[in-house]
């Protein structure tokens, strides 16, 4: 069980970290999403929580988006029009938001099943916080198509918000991971 949350933690860490050599990310996001997919599969089979199953489907969507990004961004093999690029960005952001919301909901339910009430409340509150903040960020980001080119300060603010929310996700995944590390060591 502890491997499941370890997979989620490692997966999202890879997605968050971008170490570029030229335009090539040596930690491709697609590998991160594959790890998330594996972790969610284990969690769903062990707990039967529906949210993990839905999140698993969304992780595939995010992985496909990451593969697309490799061909368009990294290798520049496909040149997309501004509209298509914008649609992919917004859709990708929405898919990631729903993925994390489903994961948080699954973690909340899982902690309730294990009678870890304080963790359940923690993950539940973080889920609401994440949904609202990232939802608002995505709505603001959707105006980027019509924002003047020299009005980029708001995009930096959105990026900072996104980084903070992802760090918080990693922290919460680490808490869940450590819970099962503790249980394993007690056994």
């Amino acid at each position: 069980m502890n491997n499941s949350y370890k997979h989620l933690f490692s997966g999202f860490l890879l997605v968050m970290l971008d170490i570029n050599i030229g335009s090539f990310d040596i930690l491709p996001d697609v590998i991160g999403y594959i790890l998330v997919f594996l972790g969610l599969g284990e969690l769903h089979s062990n707990t039967g929580i529906e949210s993990f199953r839905v999140a698993r489907i969304l992780s595939i969507v995010s992985a496909i988006g990451a593969v697309f990004e490799i061909f368009t961004g990294t290798f520049g093999l496909i040149h997309m029009s501004a509209f298509i690029s914008y649609t992919v960005t917004v859709f990708g952001g929405l898919s990631e938001l729903l993925l994390v919301v489903c994961i948080y909901h699954g973690m909340t339910t899982h902690m309730t099943m294990l009678e870890e009430i304080s963790l359940s409340n923690q993950f539940g509150n973080e889920n609401k916080r994440y949904a609202v903040i990232q939802g608002l960020s995505l709505i603001v980001m959707s105006f980027s198509l019509n924002m003047p080119k020299d009005g980029g300060a708001y995009l930096i603010a959105l990026l900072v918000v996104s980084i903070i929310m992802h760090i918080r996700l990693l922290i919460n995944l680490n808490v869940a991971k450590k819970l099962f590390d503790t249980e394993a060591s007690e056994l």
């Binding site: 649609t87 929405l94 729903l98 919301v101 489903c102 909901h105 949904a131 939802g135 959707s142």
Partner: peptide, 27 residues
């Protein structure tokens, strides 16, 4: 948060984002 509440949140967020994006693309 119940499953029903979560579903409602997800639908509301998705609808708002899609409508905003569509409006921006039309503009």
């Amino acid at each position: 948060m119940t499953d029903k509440t979560l579903k409602r949140y997800i639908i509301i967020i998705a609808v708002i984002v899609v409508l905003t994006a569509a409006g921006n693309m039309i503009y």
